[in-house]
Amino acid sequence: MATVADLRHGQKGIIKDFTENTLPIKLLELGCLPGNSVELVQVAPLNDPIYINLSGSHLAIRRSLAELIELDIVEETKSK
């Protein structure tokens, strides 16, 4: 199962429906809802934390949290 932690630079994913209550409510409020997109913007030099664009919200979260967010990776042809 892919999670936000599996994203590569510039890669996007669509958040899957989650049934478990493992995610902190704060993350939901910042836009981490099923169906919303996540993009990996940057990875910190020591590989952690990661910097994501969560449907318009730019956030840095730790990998441990990112591993809890399941998603479908959108295979994007690099247009840049």
Binding site: K26, L27, L30, P49, Y51, L59, A60, I61, R62, L65
Partner: peptide, 10 residues
């Protein structure tokens, strides 16, 4: 309680 999460403003 709080988890580490920080907004990266423009």
């Amino acid at each position: 309680r709080s988890v580490f999460m920080i907004e990266m403003p423009t």
